Simulated scan of single mutants.
Amino acid sequence: MRGIHAIYTCGVERSLRNLDLNLLLSLDALLAERNVTRAAERLGLSQPAVSAALARLRRHFGDELLRRNGNRYERTPLGEQLASRTPGAVNAVKRVFDTVPDFDPRTAEREFTLVVSDYGATVLGDHVATVIGQDAPGVRLRFQQQTPHDVDHAIETLRSVDGMVLPHGFLRDIPVVDLYEDSWVCIVSHDNSRVGDSLTIDDVATLPWVVTYSRPTAFTPASQQLRIIGVEPDIQIVVESFLAVPFLVAGTSRVALLQAELAHRLADAAGVRILACPWDVVPLKEAFWWHPSFRADPAHIWLREVLQQAGRRITADAAIRASGD
């Protein structure tokens, strides 16, 4: 077995030695732009240089990758496969060479990519941006829109980003730090005359609903709890966005669940009322999940501390708001 391993390792090393990492950047740009000229502009290279790179890539893969169709290029089936893989590969390589023995946020120039829902970007993002703006002027944040696929394939997703902001209940056996706790509230339109000063279980059972991420592996936990107590909501609209929810409720008889932090930010702008849920709702515990390879990375340790600091700010703001109610 040792001999087989040595042969395999030698083969892998020889294969990597024959590759030029610059080709990975060219491949990523060509498949994204589907145009040699635009890819060259994106890379800051000449068109002949990128054409030569495309020729080398075609020889390597034994495939055209881009096929002319009239006045434009289309990706071949293999090109389509590679197009979904190359951005993650580029990010992974970039992070390898971004690794440093220590990290000084005051002088560092680095980009961190976080996979978040629009709720997370709105509620947590501004606090994170404030902390980073004060302490790390050369650091840049990229908030990447979270999808059900990202969550269902979390380990694969986390290989190509710095981490994912997601409540407990979806992932396990992945490194995590808790950030803050939020609650769920119901929202109805300001002019919804069918609902009084409080919401009843009968209201919940009879009113039409706007729900988010209504799939077997993508759901709002509080709506699952509603089903557990025997109430099947009349779902009229499903939307894969939390920010859109209050605007789909406004001016209608619909009801929806929303995180309290987000609801308080959007209620006035959307024209909705915030009401307590008429059933016991388990709080939402927002957390930050990351790939195990980042456990001892000084830059990533700093990032986790920043996220926890932002979480404490949210908790403090919620306490101030509660004391004023």
Rank of each mutant, 00 (worst) to 15 (best):
H264Y: 09
Q144E: 11
V151I: 13
D162F: 14
S26D: 15
Y180L: 07
L54W: 04
E64D: 14
L23C: 12
R194Y: 08
R58L: 01
D173K: 03
L16G: 02
R140F: 10
I174R: 00
P175T: 02
T217Y: 09
C10L: 15
L257Y: 07
L275H: 12
F242T: 13
L141V: 03
T147W: 04
L257T: 06
A296V: 06
R106Q: 14
S183M: 05
P216T: 08
E13D: 07
L284Q: 08
S117E: 08
W209H: 11
L303Q: 08
G125M: 05
W184R: 09
V128Y: 00
V238N: 10
Q146L: 15
R56C: 04
I4S: 13
S293K: 02
H60S: 14
N69Q: 12
R295H: 12
W279P: 02
S46W: 07
A92C: 01
N71I: 09
C186E: 06
G70A: 05
V90H: 12
Q259P: 11
A154T: 04
I235Y: 03
L27T: 00
S51E: 13
H291R: 07
D20T: 06
E261G: 15
V96Q: 02
F61K: 01
P292T: 02
A319S: 14
R42L: 14
V165P: 11
A310G: 07
R59D: 13
V238T: 11
S46E: 10
